[in-house]
Write a protein that binds this DNA or RNA. Structure first.
Length: 570
DNA sequence: GCCGTTTTCGGCCCGACTGTTTTCAGTCG
């Protein structure tokens, strides 16, 4: 998907326009479009193909043309021209905390600074001294910021950030009087990765909370400290913001700091049109506070259904809330089983019995053991003989009466490069659940890869396509594949798409899930656990499902075992 | 450049914090 790179380029245009300083609002328009493309999820090439780019919020005729030009030629002429006029490495300089377009403009125009290197040189040679608006503190801040940028600051996986946030919340609760405390920001929206952590607190003794916050054991730096806002950096580089809120504004603050930015801007315009004003202190009619203490009151007072945080991306949720059409999102409690996990028969760590015991402790009604097949030698894939032996073991285990959880017989069958399956049909037919996945030759071209996967899912005994795009966050892009064509084929043959809950996969993404839902495709949320502890990752799958607007009905492992078997019979 | 229950022009979210300022600009979220 080219969404992220297009978002980056649009953002660069926005900054360069601001550096140029001609029109105040044009940069904002590009910035908005950039965020919107990034939040899109659906492959932007697919959107372009059906001529629907201007349906993306913030994308009009002109920006749509830029995107189309880029998809056709790999270039955006607006950006090329801007770069010629202002040859500044925006992305590098902007990453320095405290440096924005105005500073970039100043540095470029007065000192011809274009990148980290020339900036560092200028600092060392003392050239920044005496620049208007740049004092000694700013120079120090920039110097430290350069080191920080070089230290590869990036986003943190949700699965890493969530426990850190929980630990800080526990620390604050145990060391200061706290009436209410919430984690807000993209973490509350359950984005697959987050840039920082936002914690909101209501307390009768706010100074004590701030003291406790800055003395959290893992703090490396206190970035700023004020009466209502304090920021720290942890030793791992992650930034955490603490906001102290007054009781009458707590809900408004929670709403505001949960975001997303575009969701909030949209809400504010709705408030404006209704003759009101919305900010982090509340919803106001003139001086009068209409709503503020509870988040739900804000939405109610604007004539909207309550919008779950996972949907707050300004991707149609506000329009849906206006007419009472928000989905009733799936919850972790709706999940009755897990259809994809490994044991020590292939590359898992734990034994069959250990996995069953752990699944039973989680309250699952059924699980499916889906070890790899023989061509995946690095994962000790099983051949037909081993699978048959495994089938007998599971039959024995189910009839032993030792467990309540029903164990289904399955395999994660490799899709070979030509689209055939890595297991003989007569063995395949003895399995309850057949998941097929690509694990090799991931670089093949779009058309070939699409055909390969379609051929596999059209096999009449296949039930689920595992990790459909193959992406790994921060590590590996998705296979180049026509996902819509695959969904089409899946609908035709009654195959479900997996939502792989592994925190660095979360494959499918939110946009693809929405597309699948619109097309009537069923989803299986599976952990792909390789050890007992990973069975807990189901929650990350559910978070992602919610971001994809999924309801319990869209998901096959929310069903009773009988209903599940009906689906599996096709 | 985008957008529309104020619709094809004329607006465009809003406040905290910091540093460098004698009253405010820039950044951030």
């Amino acid at each position: 998907m080219k969404n992220r790179e297009i978002a980056r380029l649009l953002h660069e245009i926005s900054v360069l326009l601001e550096v140029e300083g001609k029109n105040k609002f044009k940069p904002r328009a590009f910035a908005r479009a950039a965020r919107s493309v990034e939040a899109l999820g659906e492959d932007i090439e697919a959107v372009a193909a059906r001529d629907a780019l201007t349906e993306i919020p913030g994308v009009g005729k002109s920006i749509a043309e830029q995107i189309q030009e880029y998809l056709a030629t790999g270039k955006m002429s607006t950006l090329e021209k801007l770069r010629q006029r202002i040859p500044v490495k925006v992305e590098e300089l902007e990453a320095i905390p405290g440096v924005g377009p105005k500073t970039i403009k100043l540095l470029y125009e007065s000192l011809k600074i274009t990148d980290l290197e020339s900036l560092e040189r200028a600092i060392n040679e003392g050239h920044l001294k005496g620049l208007r608006g740049i004092g000694p503190k700013t120079i120090t801040q920039i110097a430290e910021g350069i080191a920080l940028v070089r230290g590869v600051m990036s986003r943190t996986l949700l699965s890493e950030a969530l426990p850190i946030a929980d630990a800080i919340v526990e620390h604050l609760k145990s060391s200061a009087p706290v009436t209410r405390i919430d984690v807000a920001g993209s973490l509350r929206r359950r984005k697959e990765s987050v840039g920082d952590i936002d914690i909101l607190v209501l307390s009768e003794r706010p100074t004590d909370v701030t003291d406790a916050f800055v003395s959290y054991p893992d703090v490396s730096d206190v970035l700023l400290r004020g009466d209502t806002k304090t920021s720290i950096r942890l030793t791992n580089g992650l930034q955490v913001d603490l906001r102290l809120l007054p009781i009458e504004s707590y809900g408004a603050g929670l709403q505001y700091f949960t975001g997303s930015k575009d969701h909030n801007v949209h809400l504010r315009t709705i408030a404006q049109r209704a003759g009101m004003k919305l900010n982090e202190y509340g919803l106001f009619k003139g001086e009068e506070l209409v709503a503020g203490a509870e988040e739900s009151e804000i939405y109610q007072s604007l004539g909207l259904q309550f919008i779950p945080p996972e949907l707050r991306e300004d991707q149609g949720e506000i329009e849906a809330a206006k007419v009472g059409r928000l989905p009733s999102l799936v919850e972790l409690d709706d999940i009755r089983g897990d259809l994809h996990m490994h044991t020590d028969y292939s590359d898992g760590v734990n034994t069959l019995e250990e996995m069953v015991e752990a699944a039973e402790a989680l309250g699952h009604e059924y699980i499916c053991i889906a070890d790899h097949t023989k061509s995946l030698t690095v994962a000790k894939g099983m051949d037909e003989e081993q699978i048959l032996r495994r089938i007998d073991e599971i039959d024995d285990l189910n009839s032993s009466g030792r467990w309540h959880v029903r164990v289904l017989k399955g395999a994660e069958v490799d899709i070979l490069p030509d689209g055939t399956l890595d297991l003989e049909d007569d063995v395949l037919y003895q399995l309850d659940v057949v998941t097929v996945s690509v694990h090799s030759k991931m670089q093949m071209g779009r058309a070939t890869m699409t055909e390969r996967i379609i051929r596999a899912i059209e096999h009449k005994h296949v039930h689920i396509l595992g990790h459909p795009t193959g992406r790994k966050l921060f590590k590996r892009p998705a296979y180049d594949v026509d996902i819509e064509a695959i969904f089409e084929a899946a609908r035709g043959s009654g195959v479900a798409m997996e939502l792989n809950a592994y925190p660095e996969r979360l494959d499918l993404g939110a946009g693809h899930l929405r597309l699948a839902k619109r097309m009537g495709i069923r989803i299986a949320i599976n952990t792909d656990a390789h050890r007992t502890s990973e069975l807990h990752n189901m929650r990350f799958g559910v978070f992602q499902a919610r971001r994809g607007w999924l309801e319990a009905d869209d998901i096959i492992n929310t069903r009773s075992l009988d209903e599940l078997f009906r689906f599996l019979k096709k």
